[in-house]
Amino acid sequence: MFVINCPYCGERDQSEFSCGGEAHIVRPKQPTELSDDEWAEYLFMRKNIKGVQFERWNHAHGCRKWFNMVRDTSNDKIHAVYKMGEKPPVI
């Protein structure tokens, strides 16, 4: 449980947000060309990092906008919040 600084609404309780998992997983450009292994990689395989992780969040009970966040999963400390489409910060 922590406070998230929504890039659109400011600081709100984490319970207002929902997490969309690992960020920057690129949707395959040509899905019909993909092998089963590549589909598995895209759909299911996750880094699941213990440490600094880039992830997607949605302000579900607020502005309902998606954004990205950099958080340390070993202590829930938030390092950065940035809008969709923006370049990920170097941590």
Binding site: M1, S15, C19, N48, K50, E55, T73, S74, D76
Partner: peptide, 14 residues
Amino acid sequence: TDAYISYTQRGSHD
């Protein structure tokens, strides 16, 4: 469960 990845062994109050 909390609906986000975490290794903190705590969990949220809500």
